[in-house]
């Protein structure tokens, strides 16, 4: 499979998006099941925000 510069860029973008999504899921263990109810959420982002 031959890849050009654009292919590389798109793959990089997709990989970065996936990494960010995984990082988010890792932090919000309920995967958004909190429905935006941040105050009762104990995820890392929220704790940082509270500080």
């Amino acid at each position: 499979m031959h890849l050009n510069l654009w292919d590389g860029l798109i793959l990089l973008l997709v990989a970065a998006s996936a990494a960010l999504a995984l990082r988010h899921i890792g932090r919000h263990k309920d995967a958004g099941g909190c429905g935006g109810d941040c105050a009762s959420c104990a995820c890392a982002c929220n704790r940082r925000q509270k500080r």
Binding site: V14, S17, A18, A21, L22, H24, I25, H28, A31, G32, C34, G35, G36, D37
Partner: peptide, 20 residues
Amino acid sequence: WEKAKDFLQRAFTVILIATL
């Protein structure tokens, strides 16, 4: 706004990963 934000978050996290 909270509900929309939550839905968008899910679409671009769980569903994006699942799709991939």
